[in-house]
Nucleic acid binder design. Structure first.
Lengths: 348, 348
DNA sequence: CTGAAAGCGCTAACAC
DNA sequence: GTGTTAGCGCTTTCAG
């Protein structure tokens, strides 16, 4: 791109051109014209435009975006924030969120936005969301996961409009949420397990997050109605720590139907069961949640409740753009889908 | 945070406070003083400072970061860019990169930086890196993966200093790279397989990326030296597409020692082998690469070459900060570690 | 300790 | 078409 000797400098050896004004000077025009020329706006002579663009390229000049954005009052940036309220290990590690984040980034890029990513540990602060939305740095905000910050999000949404949130929908809430119908998913999981002959259930996963709590409660209701016991095993959601917990909890558990809060938990359970000589799906059946790409690659492949991650990302971005444009948007609660693979026997 | 009736507005019902000047007016001081007060600088009367801070809180006022950053010439932002040069499906999906990204975000947050995340498809453009580094939006840039953009990164590094890159180290290169010693890793994998009794090897993974190519070549050299055949099965790295490819390629392959380019490939191979009635590690042994958290949760758990992701993230950030401070930094090539688990038999 | 003034680098009326 | 003029909202000398 640049050879060693041939730096993008005026042959005469002037100092680097850093501003519009610099370029304007050596082009013999005004700063305004350079601005217009570089922006490719029509209101400029084609010839001068080309000349200026060439000059800019030669000198490796690029307009300062900070100044541009300040002046034009459009940042072209979307804040994406992951609140780590109830996470035991406070890091962005959940593969589901990470995948969602990747897709959101893709969607935003497609729409010409840049992503300002922020991790936040809300423990000590109550204004993490205001801080971002009110910073003047972003045109809008996407929150990945409500964590235990529902009320704060709610209160910010009251006066800050360009905001969408991945998470759980509570009737009557104000903030625009997109997510999965976790109650339906929980119901489907329990029903499928029971239909496949399970007679004693266990739910694997901590229920501190509202989404997972909802899955559990729905499953519990189904089990109760069917007169089937369901025990709750509060397994940590982080891959790093779930292993030992499952090794401890599972052997003592007599359930023949497992509902895992995530594919990863199911995967780990698969391993522990095998080590204890219990076969899946013959001795124990499992239904999990998410349907991450790896769900189909386990042994046996996971029967799981699929959340449409890419659809979620698309909706999050689509609705955010609408809100930035001043429109109002409705929630989007997607019905999950039961994907039957190898960890359950066929239903009668 | 805010009750319904008690909006952060002057009781009298003045319009919203948007600027320093606004706040200054109602505080009866000058904008400069407000700026100093809010910044917590010492050169301001404690009493007025408190008064102004209280006022700011009451009115929900926050200084515009765009303006602040422009004026102070420090953005507090680090650009993190993922070039998707040779990826088949051009999305940020690789769990290794995603995990690395998460850790980098954590590290940067810890250091008080915000992350500007950018995905880039370099196919059509040659100035993607200049565009970011020269935008005036970031204080520094981290590139996650060189993809096939080695030369471009190299040329930018020549004149842009605050830049660190995750990837492969080529002797004599200019850009500051941190990564794993892939040659060593490849060697360790092949040697371990052979030491455990494998007599015919296969490498699973496409070698378009330089990191994986290096792993392959190192393994190949070891195999050649030992007089053991090694075939190359160019399996796609994306979870979504690798499954079918492995199902197709593996049954035709007679190797009793598999070197998988990633844990995910190994996991998928595990499944396919099982479906064909071949047991691991008795019939076939596997060594993979990465040691993602899930590597210990498969059945059997993976013997794998561990890359220290969090160390990598830390170095990437640490060196970047040094470079922002004007220092020069050396490369950091970390020796990977062989983690022996259940997919290989014990070495004689 | 505080106010006034001068920009950071760019864009967008408004003239010519 | 292009130059001129005013700022975007903030920080930071420089006086006092």
């Amino acid at each position: 791109m640049t050879s060693n000797k041939n730096y993008p400098e005026k042959t005469g050896g002037q100092q680097k051109v850093r501003t519009l004004a610099d370029l304007a000077r050596i082009a013999g025009v005004s700063a305004g014209t350079v601005s217009r020329a570089l922006a490719g706006k029509s209101l400029v002579n084609a010839e001068t435009r080309d000349r200026i663009q060439t000059l800019a390229r030669e000198h490796g000049f690029r307009p300062n975006q900070m100044a541009s954005k300040l002046r034009s009052q459009k940042t072209g940036l979307i804040g994406v924030v992951v609140p780590l309220g109830h996470e035991k290990q406070q890091h962005i590690s959940d593969p589901f969120f990470l995948t969602l984040l990747g897709q959101i980034a893709d969607e935003l890029t497609e729409s010409g936005y840049d992503v300002m990513l922020r991790r936040v540990i809300p423990d000590d602060t109550t204004d993490w969301l205001d801080q971002l939305s009110g910073s003047g740095m972003v045109d809008g905000v996407i929150v990945i996961g409500q964590s235990d910050q529902f009320d704060i999000i709610e209160s910010v949404a009251e006066h800050y409009h360009p905001l969408t949130v991945w998470g759980h929908h509570t009737p009557g809430q104000r903030h625009c949420v997109v997510g999965t119908d976790n109650a339906l998913g929980g119901r489907m999981a329990a029903e499928h397990l029971i239909a496949c002959g399970a007679r004693s259930l266990a739910f694997l996963g901590t229920t501190t997050g509202i989404e997972i709590a909802t899955r559990y409660q729905a499953a519990k209701a189904v089990a109760d109605a069917a007169g089937i016991p369901l025990v709750h095993l509060p397994i940590d959601l982080a891959v790093a720590t779930m292993g030992p917990q499952i090794e401890k909890a599972l052997p003592e558990c007599q359930a023949d139907g497992l509902f895992a809060a995530s594919d990863l938990i199911a995967m780990s359970a698969l391993r522990v069961l095998h080590q204890h000589g219990r076969t899946v799906p013959n001795d124990v059946q499992i239904v999990s949640f998410d349907d991450l790409p790896l769900a189909s690659q386990t042994m046996p492949p996971l029967t799981t409740i699929r959340q449409e991650i890419s659809l979620g990302a698309r909706m999050l971005v689509e609705k955010l753009k609408a809100r930035i444009a001043g429109e109002d948007t409705d929630h989007f609660v997607n019905a999950p889908q039961l994907i039957v693979r190898g960890t359950t026997r066929s239903a009668a």
